[in-house]
């Protein structure tokens, strides 16, 4: 059963008369529970594909179906709803809201979902414990290291019980050891919680963790 399906997706950036074809006919099927790595050189279209899959951006041609919803058909506000309920997002950097503590950042998504405070608090603490940040609830993002911040982001991505977690180069700002630990954590979450993970990287060591590896170049899927 597929959680994500994209068919012949094209995304073109226009700047004046210049056109950049960022995605050039991408078709991809991702099954539930996969731990998929998207690999490709800089500028190949990884981020663009993530934005499209995550409903952050719209395609120019083709279609993206996420858990049964055809994204192009949804309004902005329905897209926001979909992101909230079904997708967890982890960015390369700048993942956390600066004025909120680690715990509050994790709670934030559940707040948007309307989960009652007591449950929110309990679940956020549990998630932070799972990612190994048990004692650091009250820290602000500025008081955490880069690796710790990314772990909070993993916890936050899982907080909303998403069907799929999209992580665009989550390890790019980390040293390789910390990066490997983050990936191990994500893999663990993938296995214990049965959440689909898609992440992009150009780090060979990180690709090792993937159960499926997809290469992208010049906006096209090259091989698997």
């Amino acid at each position: 059963m597929c959680i994500v399906e994209c068919e012949n997706v094209r995304k073109i950036y226009r700047k004046g008369t210049q056109e950049v074809v960022a995605l050039d006919g991408v078709s991809l099927k991702i099954k539930k529970g996969e731990f998929l790595a998207l690999a490709g050189p800089s500028g190949s279209g990884k981020t663009t594909l993530f934005n499209v899959l995550g409903g952050l951006d719209r395609v120019d041609e083709g279609c993206v179906i996420l858990d049964g919803d055809e994204l192009n058909q949804l309004t902005d506000s329905r897209l926001a709803e979909l992101r909230l309920r079904k997708i967890g997002i982890i960015f390369q950097s700048f993942n956390l809201i600066p004025v909120l503590s680690a715990l509050e950042n994790v709670e934030f998504v559940m707040l948007l979902q309307g989960i009652p405070p007591a449950e929110r608090n309990r679940k956020a603490k549990e998630l932070l414990g799972d990612v190994g940040l048990g004692g650091l609830y009250a820290r602000r993002p500025a008081e955490l290291s880069g690796g710790q911040q990314q772990r909070v982001a993993v916890a936050r991505a899982l907080a909303g019980n998403p069907a799929i977690v999209l992580a665009d180069e989550p390890t790019a700002n980390l040293d390789s050891q910390t990066g490997a630990r983050l990936l191990a954590l994500m893999k663990e979450m993938n296995q214990t919680r049965k959440v689909t993970f898609i992440f992009s990287t150009h780090d060979r060591m990180v690709m090792e963790y993937a159960s499926r590896l997809v290469h992208i170049k010049d906006g096209r899927i090259r091989d698997e």
Binding site: D76, A80, I87, F91, F94, I97, L112, R156
Partner: peptide, 16 residues
């Protein structure tokens, strides 16, 4: 802007 963009990405509605 970045922060507000993040909140949107996480699924906050603009009205929020």
């Amino acid at each position: 802007k970045k922060e507000l963009g993040l909140m949107l990405a996480l699924g906050s509605r603009p009205a929020r």
